[in-house]
Amino acid sequence: MTPGDAPLFAARGVVKHYRLGKVPVPALRGVDVEVGRGEALALAGPSGSGKTTLLNLFGGLDVPDAGTVLLDGRDLGGMGEGERTLLRRHQLGFVFQTFNLVPVLSARENVEYPLWIAGTPARERRERAEAALAAVGLTARGEHRPDQLSGGERQRVAIARALVHRPLAILADEPTGNLDSINGQLVLDLLLRCNAETGATVVIATHDPAVLARLPRRVRLRDGAVISDERGLAS
């Protein structure tokens, strides 16, 4: 495999347990998955299947108990917390089911936030935030606080926040889970457009059939194991 063909994400023999009281509960039982650059795929499965756990491991939000998770060839489990933080800051974007915007910041400030913490100069920060808001169709709502926005608008702000720093990948955990079907489709459109236009890899953890139907690859998990890896649009 040439360097250009190397996967952006690679999970190899990944095992992860959580503890329920004193009882270890397996979340992933030896998962092997590779995600190429510029891919758009779904991690599909019912609740408890391990899709969010795998997404968190791809995002460096957690580390595996066994096995390795590689991002761009680097072992996330071998990194320190500070190194993983910088990696998330510069190379990854996150979208959550519950939007997770900072309530005391306006939409524009929320979008600027990743650039704040990266020390981007104010003028560039503002221009890029405006462009990101424009990309999600929320230029006019920039000064509104999250509680003044609808659910769909909040998720679009979250997408703008995820793409404003031009990440290598956007990791979305049930991004349509709290939205009606129209807003869900709109959000999915934005993620896929981002994938197509910027080349950012998009990984979506979901069990929404409407989302799965539109993604060209679906990795299905059940009880912490990959049960299928389907490529091509679902018929």
Binding site: G82, T85, R88, R89, F94, T98, P103, I117, A118
Partner: peptide, 16 residues
């Protein structure tokens, strides 16, 4: 907790 977790997730360092 969730908000602070989000801030950490999107790249806020512990000192920040």
């Amino acid at each position: 907790t969730r908000e602070l977790g989000t801030l950490r997730a999107i790249g806020t360092s512990r000192p920040q």
